[in-house]
Design a protein around this nucleic acid. Structure first.
Length: 478
RNA sequence: GGCGCCGUAGCCAAGGGGUAAGGCAGAGGUCUGCAAAACCUCCAUUUGGCGGUUCGAAUCCGCCCGGCGCCUCCA
């Protein structure tokens, strides 16, 4: 498969450093609030990559951290009158809930920054020893950017002639270079209030944000990882700083591929609380949207393209997901016709292969979806022509192809699970459907249509077929 | 100001030197008591505008217009 590497700005073939085992690190949420739909676009792409790597037969060590100590988490805890851990726990749990809602495969591990403080201290000591970091008069330990020649290679920013250099103000006076960044910060009163202080050779304090990811990544995955992911905003300075720290400490290349996910916009504007277009997953669920439709929407554009998140888009996605659910059900329920496989079986295999090839091209989901819809249309056409039946071998091949595609898309089972009805409800619906059948038998269409309309308002769709009336719970959006 | 990205039909969205994938919506049709679902047909001589390179450009180059991101611990 090929992936686009932000560092070299080229798309090239990806092979794991260790055959069959891929080491991936994705910058995770800062747990100071509920993650929003934009955050989840990025994480949905993590899940997409995770699933596709597994489709390739790789074992994947996929680490997604929780940043549970930084300015925002500390401020949030202080405002809530809680200890840091008490405050962040809520949002850690919420993230894991939302991830499950959106059908994410469990990641290999979710390290919390606060669990890696000793490793961070040791990491800083190595950097100080190597002359890459220094203790400043204010008690902070800073990374010395000028000591790292390759600084700026990833982002094209941060050269010593950069305009940002002018950004020197009072708080930077203790730095040797304005680009230097904190690895360790001395304890402030608010830090002590919420319990965000740890001991170190430089006194009580807490780690700098950039350091956290370098330490968790190298601790869990080794000095050189295969793929490092993040939102596009993290390219500078976060990822630039991660490279500088990690490579200075280990002497090894840090990440072989850097993938950056483009931000989504909402109604063509940047998402922000002031514009009122700030959505969380749970809010969208409360409005009645299907989790599978949200997932579909987040994945439907290429990850390096801007994605405009709209209600219309969610409605489109709802329809697409419903069509897939209907399709799988139709194939599963199809009557069996005698004989062996026809041309349908090899065609299904070809479409699955095309689907995989598209994803191999830097996770090109839109192109992959074209293969999916071609499969759907060809099989539906064949079913129509054959009066709704198909050969067993064909059906198995089609279902295998569909399962192979959905192993990456992950929407069909997710959609089915949100369409379950309670048993009692089922009896009531069936009774109404039976009553309608009686009415139809006597050509009392007024009654029949009234029942159908009533059920429609509950999201129950009726279909009169040659084998009788079938009913299905569908999703049509809020 | 510095660095970078984007502009494809009503909407969403691929392609990225060889003659515009796919989905949604819409129109007509098959099926149906009527529907629904499904299928068939139609739906961009054209890819923000103007030039240029080329046998050939949506794809390359230049300029212009419009939108956006990063440079502030926002995914």
């Amino acid at each position: 498969m090929n992936l686009h590497d932000s560092l070299t700005r080229e798309t090239r073939r990806f092979e794991p450093l260790r055959p069959g085992r891929v080491a991936v690190y994705g910058c995770g949420p800062t747990v100071y609030d509920f993650a929003h739909i934009g955050n989840f676009r990025t994480f949905a792409v993590y899940d997409l990559l995770h699933r596709h790597l597994r489709r390739h037969g790789h074992e994947v060590d996929f680490v997604v951290n929780f940043t549970d100590v930084d300015d925002k988490t500390i401020t949030g805890a202080a405002n809530a009158g809680l200890l840091l851990g008490e405050h962040t726990e809520t949002f850690v749990d919420a993230f894991l809930d939302d991830a499950e809602t959106l059908g994410f495969l469990p990641f290999s591990s979710h390290p919390r920054a606060t669990a890696y403080i000793p490793a961070m201290v040791a990491f800083i000591e190595r950097l100080v020893k190597r002359g890459s970091a220094y203790l400043a008069a204010d008690g902070s330990v800073y990374y010395a950017v000028p000591s790292f020649d390759a600084y700026g290679r990833l982002s094209g920013k941060g050269g010593d002639d950069d305009a940002g250099r002018a950004r020197i103000d009072a708080e930077d006076l203790d730095k040797r270079d304005p680009r230097d960044f904190a690895l360790w910060k001395p304890a402030q009163p608010v830090d002590r209030d919420v319990g965000a202080v740890w001991d170190s050779p430089w006194g009580l304090g807490r780690p700098g944000w950039h350091l956290e990811c370098s330490v968790m990544a190298t601790s869990l995955l080794g000095d050189t990882i295969d793929i490092h992911l993040g939102g596009e905003d993290l390219l500078f300075p976060h990822h630039e700083n991660e490279i500088a720290q990690s490579e200075a400490a280990t002497g090894q290349p840090f990440a072989r591929f850097w993938l950056h996910v483009k931000h989504l916009k909402v109604d063509a504007r940047k998402m922000s609380k002031s514009l009122g277009n700030f959505h969380t997953v749970r809010e969208l669920l409360d409005e009645g949207y299907d989790p599978a439709a949200i997932r579909w929407t987040l994945l439907s554009a290429h990850y390096r393209s801007e994605l405009n998140f709209t209600r219309d888009g969610l409605d489109d996605a709802t329809a697409s997901v419903q069509r897939l659910v209907d399709f799988r059900r139709r194939v599963r329920d199809a009557g069996e016709t005698p004989g062996g496989a026809t041309e349908l079986a090899p065609r299904a295999g070809e479409h699955l292969a095309a689907f995989g090839r598209a994803l191999d091209r830097d996770l090109n989901v839109p192109r992959a979806l074209a293969a999916l819809w071609t499969l759907v249309r060809e099989v539906n056409t064949a079913l129509d022509a054959a009066g709704g039946g198909m050969a067993r071998a064909d059906r198995e091949a089609v279902l295998d192809a569909l399962a192979g595609m959905d192993a990456v898309l992950g929407v069909i089972d997710l959609a089915e699970s949100s369409r379950k009805v309670a048993d009692t409800d089922e009896e009531r619906v069936q009774a109404l459907v039976d009553a309608r059948e009686q009415a139809r038998a006597t050509r009392d269409f007024a009654t029949a249509d009234r029942i159908r309309d009533e059920l429609a308002t509950e999201g129950i769709r009726l279909e009169d077929t040659a084998e009788g009336t079938r009913w299905t719970r569908i999703r049509t959006g809020p």
